[in-house]
Amino acid sequence: MGQVANAAIVILFDGVAYGMLLFIMSVGLSITMGLMGFVNLAHGGFAMAGGYVLVSLMVGLGVPFIAALVLAAVFVAVLSIPFERYLYRRLYEADELDHVLLSIGLVLMATAAITFIYGPSAVSITVPDYLNGQVDLGFGTFPAYRTFTIGVGGLLILGLWYGFEGTIIGAKIRAAVDNRRMAQSIGINVDRLFVIAFALGSGLAALGGGLAIEIIGMEPTFALTYLVFFLIVVAVGGLGSIRGAFVAALLLGLIDTAGKYLWPDGGAFFIYAVTITILLIRPLGLFGRA
């Protein structure tokens, strides 16, 4: 009995940690897709960039982990701005096919560039001691790093919630997601909003990419491998819905983790079956609005 309970707790904890990681990496995609309607398959490229910048900062320059994490996110956020201004923006009016093709092209270039610079094998970092080993949370001991990830995810949700519900810029973004033309006509500078949202989304993805190294690993195929998961989080959660992305990411994290423990051969099958079922019943996702 105790063993079953223990296994359940392990699955639950790992699943939540994985879900949080997926949330951090995907929430930016949900915002930008909801706001700009751009099907950005290259979002994972920004997550990957975050991971590799973190490696360079820590291994190359000896920057401490937390500082490197923040720096990598900021760096990628800034790096993403020219992409929005000079590439994505040109295709906002085009159809999904063009979005898909442009972003696939970018993913391929990113994958090749990363392979060229860092080599094809997975990279690793040495996390600080306080994130190694176990941590006692009062009701049990858990891996410190995953606890840290869940904590970061939790803080991020609070931050995003405040940012969107409590600030002017958040209100503007919500207004533009709801009805872009209306937002424009009441004097909101939608162009600038797009840049801010895109940079924010890319920065968050980079933060997730940095955190991901220790949990799911980081290699040049990362952006392509997890592309489908990011899209599932966004589509199942509903475009532009932070709450939706959170629920979908947790669901995905839990199902995937449970599947891998309980049914190693066919675990992934379950995820896609659930995704298809949800989308067939709710084409706009769990929290999506027309």
């Binding site: 897709m33 489908v228 992934a268 099958f269 989308l279």
Partner: peptide, 28 residues
């Protein structure tokens, strides 16, 4: 018959996941 009732991103996701589902089925 099932998928072509949907449009846009939803259709994109459904075609994508249907193919992967078949791949997972073949794997299993």
């Amino acid at each position: 018959w099932v998928l072509l009732r949907y449009h846009g991103l939803t259709l994109l996701m459904l075609t994508l996941t249907t193919a992967i589902l078949m791949q997972e089925t073949a794997n299993a």
